[in-house]
């Protein structure tokens, strides 16, 4: 009996060790570089095989919306961009936690490169929303709850990037931006909720951008676009992170070896 308990204990211990090792391997720059090198072709394939067909499907084959006509086809970039914008911030905040708790070098690389990419997708979401608003609401900008909270998300990205740019020492910049992005992620639900509440107070009847239930012939291309945008985001983040890793690790032997040919 005692032996069996011990066995179970060692088993959980080895499992835990395995998880721990896998997790900590991400901290190794060389491992990160090799892994992203292997993953990149797959993500490019995802972009080519999911995003581009999804966009063509949405643009040319999906039926028009009964109320909005063809202008609703902007949804196939607007909604995925919004998803990337929010996930990008979440990734940045998670990387911040890893930076503060485990002092993992690679986490800060990710946090640093995600910020401008996430901000650019937030910008994209805002502008496509405005363009969509013109034929739908009759104005370029409506203080719609979702657009407004997206605008504030954009400000949050800007503040994180500004803080990183202002601090010269890279290690200090890493931890300071980590704290700020964690503060931001704690605040985001409150901001979103308050903006929603403010919007219902001031605008009882605004046309919602998307219907609550989308017809399947519109939903499937949208899902393809969302998945495809995630691949695109992964490609951009990995490419940018690889540059950053090389720059930070230029003293190490593997970078020198990589540079030789």
């Amino acid at each position: 009996m005692q032996q069996r308990v011990n066995q179970a204990e060692t088993k959980t211990a080895t499992l835990w060790q395995w998880i721990n090792n896998t997790f900590h391997r991400f901290g190794s720059p060389k491992y990160f570089y090799d892994l992203t090198g292997k993953l990149l072709p797959w993500c490019w394939a995802g972009v080519l095989l999911v995003l581009i067909p999804g966009l063509i499907w949405g643009l040319a084959f999906a039926p028009p919306d009964y109320y909005q006509g063809n202008s609703y086809r902007i949804i196939f970039i607007h909604v995925p961009a919004a998803g990337i914008a929010m996930m990008g911030y979440a990734v940045m905040a998670f990387a911040g936690i890893v930076t503060l708790v485990w002092r993992m070098k690679m986490a800060d690389v990710i946090a640093k490169v995600v910020a401008p990419i996430g901000a650019s997708f937030t910008f994209l979401c805002l502008v496509t929303g405005a363009i969509w608003g013109r034929p739908t609401w009759g104005t370029w900008w409506e203080w719609d709850a979702r657009l407004t909270s997206m605008l504030i998300l954009f400000f949050l990205y800007v503040s994180v990037m500004a803080l990183r740019a202002a601090i010269e020492h890279p290690d200090v910049a890493a931890r300071a931006t980590a704290v700020l992005s964690i503060v931001g992620i704690v605040n985001l639900p409150i901001i979103r909720y308050s903006v929603n509440w403010w919007n219902t107070l001031h605008q009882p009847s605004s046309i919602r951008l998307t219907g609550s239930s989308l017809a399947p012939e519109m939903l499937y291309p949208l899902l393809a676009c969302i998945v495809g945008f995630y691949f695109l985001f992964a490609v951009l983040v990995m490419l940018s992170a690889r540059n950053e890793v090389l720059l930070r690790e230029y003293r190490s032997a593997w970078v020198k070896k990589w540079l030789k040919p």
Binding site: S71, I74, W132, R134
Partner: peptide, 26 residues
């Protein structure tokens, strides 16, 4: 696109620009 061509195409063109700008910078 019915009458919505300019809106739809400008949105898609902007997306292309943003993505290509990101790639170009990287």
């Amino acid at each position: 696109m019915g009458t919505h061509g300019p809106y739809v195409w400008s949105a898609y063109a902007l997306t292309l620009i943003v993505v290509l700008a990101n790639l170009g910078v990287i």
